[in-house]
Write a protein that binds this DNA or RNA. Structure first.
Length: 691
DNA sequence: GTAGGGTTAG
């Protein structure tokens, strides 16, 4: 509107000035120019123009529309208006009227309606950067090169930045190479471009060249270099950059120091990270977040939470980044109570449930066994991204809700969220766990349609899908025809399926391939030795177990834990160290009699076949989940839901026993093992005995 | 004009 009015004003003007005051007055009288804001009205009023004016539309703030000073200048009858004030911000990237390709603002410049200065180009480029508009940015770049400002380094740097932020590093690099005069910002812009686009080597390689030219890096340069160093293969570059930081006197810059903390944390150098952190003269939220994120990544939930409370005691407000790490920490320590509390605390202090942090809350609830709460969070999310969907699908898959996972996945496709490779892993896992073979095969093929390249994990999941369903030969054929070399994980999936379906011959074949390719995992060794034991090939049992001993592999001792209130009660197999040992044993005897009456038959095939005395004794062990269950039954009121967590997978016999317990004792019991959740209720399990 | 911290799977 404003632009149109100015056109009118300009064409009506007979004077040599760009805009004439008289013409402007005419435009206002004809209602072509809409004016709002007190200050403008005052100007108009002084000139007796207030009544015919429509009061609306033009924003009063100086960065939108006509700035106050420009307007005043205009009324002082200046020779020319400031170009960047004449076009409103919302019109920066408006399309041309006469061509689909062009930009309106560029037309105006070409027509001479507005006279650009370099700030206009900068503003237009900034807009493209913020909105990720590469095509428009390129047009402005080309236009700029034809202008009289074409060698202005300031704007050229803005263009490099626009290209890197819009993801076109090639354009940025090309410009960089073509620039005859580069300053420190030029180098820094390109370094940050590489570092933000996960190309750390290229970012780091620029640094020595820059130094050689005698350019001095600043805090921006160091921030980017340290980010790049954090994803390098070793900590050597990071240490070198640190030395430069000290030399150049940037150690106490809060950006640089926070980046240093983060860089060291990424290489597990917690001591160094802590030293930098403690030595910071001024900290901000980011400094804390870097340290909290480190502990959250490491699964050190308690440390992360301690820092979370400490940062607030020291007067720092948690941000979305903080919450994301803290909820991850709660998820890894199963601190659901604490997590719920922090969730409430966040909402109370005005935190919104945006995807950024909502995803981690959803994940936390799902991991803590409450798929209902996870679902609620998903439904309440103010914004959803692909990670929200993936997290929901993962939760559903792990809780045995295969059908619902498939439905959600279809819904996601329907509303047009592009699935990524993790999405496909989630939905394939859901199908595999739920026995939805046809759906799984269909989704595997669907990856092509969405241009998702199958990764080795997808192949593993497909072998798992076929294998679990008993289609062992199909699984083997698939492995033979795969375009990639089978890995130990591929053979491991087949081995697991062979154990499940008691196919010794193929199991031995898969097991031997599996341990050939990776001898660091005890799981396949144990399964393989059990298969040999089951058919009496004791020399092979001895061979596999000897190899395990030689490379120092031990079966991870199985343990289970239950939370009663805020306390964790941990049990290992055959545990008699618990203070309530007597009562627990008695309870289990009582329970076990009850469930036997209900039809439970102990299944000894899950006891490992061992040969020596020590191991023979172990056969008599009472599995830890049974002890944990007995303890929970003793210590919780009738009817309450029991959650048991395990560090290894639940064994078949315990699985069957717990099903009976859920019926006989009328309890809902959830067991989380390393792979998934089992919801036992009324005598059956959500996994439908298919895991 | 240039900077640092987060989530899903395995």
């Amino acid at each position: 509107m404003f632009i149109r009015a100015l056109h009118h004003v300009r064409s009506a003007s007979s004077s040599s000035r760009l805009f004439s005051f008289e013409a402007l007055v005419q435009a206002i009288k004809h209602g072509e120019l809409e004016i709002s804001s007190g200050i403008y009205q005052e100007h108009l009023h002084r000139r007796g123009l207030s009544s015919p004016c429509t009061i609306a539309s033009i924003s009063t703030s100086s960065n939108k529309g006509l700035s106050t000073s420009a307007f005043e200048a205009f009324f002082e009858d200046n020779e020319e208006g400031d170009a960047s004030c004449i076009i409103q911000e919302k019109d920066y990237l408006r399309k041309s009227h006469n061509s689909k390709e062009g930009l309106y603002v560029l037309d105006l410049i070409d027509q001479g309606s507005i006279v650009p200065d370099h700030t206009l180009y900068n503003k237009l480029l900034k807009k493209c950067t913020d909105l990720g508009k590469l095509r428009e940015g390129r047009m402005i770049h080309e236009h700029f090169l034809k202008s009289k400002f074409k060698s202005d380094v300031f704007t050229l740097n803005t263009i490099i930045n626009m290209y890197t932020k819009c993801g076109s590093l090639n354009d940025a690099k090309k410009m960089f190479d073509e620039m005859p005069c580069k300053d420190m910002v030029t180098w820094t812009a390109l370094i940050s471009g590489y570092s933000q686009n996960e190309r750390p080597e290229e970012a780091l390689a620029l640094f020595p060249q820059m130094i050689e030219l005698g350019l001095k890096p600043n805090q921006f340069t160091f921030g980017s270099l340290l980010k790049a160093s954090g994803s390098a293969t070793t900590d050597t570059p990071g240490r070198q950059v640190h030395a430069f930081v000290v030399n150049c006197g940037y150690s106490s810059d809060v950006y640089v120091a926070s980046s240093l903390v983060d860089m060291y944390a990424r290489f597990d150098r917690i001591k160094e990270a802590q030293i930098v952190f403690d030595g910071m003269v001024s900290k901000n939220e980011v400094s804390w977040n870097a340290l909290i994120a480190f502990h959250a990544r490491k699964g050190e939930g308690k440390d992360a939470l301690k820092l979370f409370w400490r940062m607030q005691r020291e007067g720092f407000k948690p941000t979305h980044f903080t919450y994301a790490s803290v909820f991850k920490a709660c998820a890894s320590t199963e601190s659901l109570e604490q997590g719920k509390w922090i969730h409430a605390h966040m909402l109370k202090s005005g935190g919104k449930l945006i995807a950024f942090v909502g995803n981690t809350i959803l994940d936390m609830y799902a991991k803590a066994g409450s798929i209902e709460d996870a679902r609620k969070i998903f439904n309440r999310l103010e914004s959803r991204d692909v990670v929200s969907w993936n997290s929901m699908l993962t939760g559903l898959a792990q809780h045995g809700k295969a059908r619902e996972a498939v439905e959600r996945f279809e819904e996601m496709l329907k509303i047009g969220v592009p699935p990524n490779y993790i999405t496909f892993l989630c939905v394939l896992t859901a199908c595999s766990h739920g026995g939805l073979v046809n759906e799984g095969l269909y989704y595997f093929e669907l990856m092509k349609k969405y241009n998702v390249e199958p990764h080795v994990d997808h192949y593993v999941t497909k072998v798992d899908l076929l294998g679990r369903a008993g289609l062992l030969n199909k699984a083997l054929d698939f492995i033979k025809d795969m375009p990639i070399e089978p890995t130990s994980a591929i053979w491991g999936a087949l081995l697991g399926a062979c154990r499940m379906h008691k196919n010794t011959e193929l199991g031995i074949f898969a097991g031997e391939r599996c341990i050939e390719l990776d001898h660091t995992d005890s799981g396949p060794h144990i399964i393989l030795s059990n298969i040999y034991a089951s058919i009496g090939r004791l020399s092979d049992v001895a061979r596999v177990r000897k190899r395990m001993r030689e490379i120092g592999l031990d079966k991870e001792p199985g343990n289970s834990w239950v939370k009663i209130g805020n306390a964790d009660h941990v049990f290992v197999a055959n545990d008699d160290a618990h203070p309530l040992n007597e009562e627990i044993r008695k309870m289990w005897v009582k329970v076990s009699e009850k469930i036997k009456q209900a039809g439970y038959v102990p299944d000894t095939s899950h006891v490992l076949a061992f040969t020596d005395q020590q191991e023979r004794e172990a056969r008599l062990q009472v599995h830890s989940e049974k002890l944990a269950l007995a303890f929970a039954l003793l210590n919780t009121p009738p009817g309450t839901r029991i959650l048991i967590l395990k560090n290894i997978r639940v064994c078949g016999d315990c699985h069957s026993a717990i099903k009976f317990v859920s019926k006989v004792m009328e309890r809902d019991i959830i067991v989380r093992d390393t792979k998934r959740y089992h919801h036992f209720s009324g005598g059956s399990c959500s996994c439908k005995d298919y895991w």
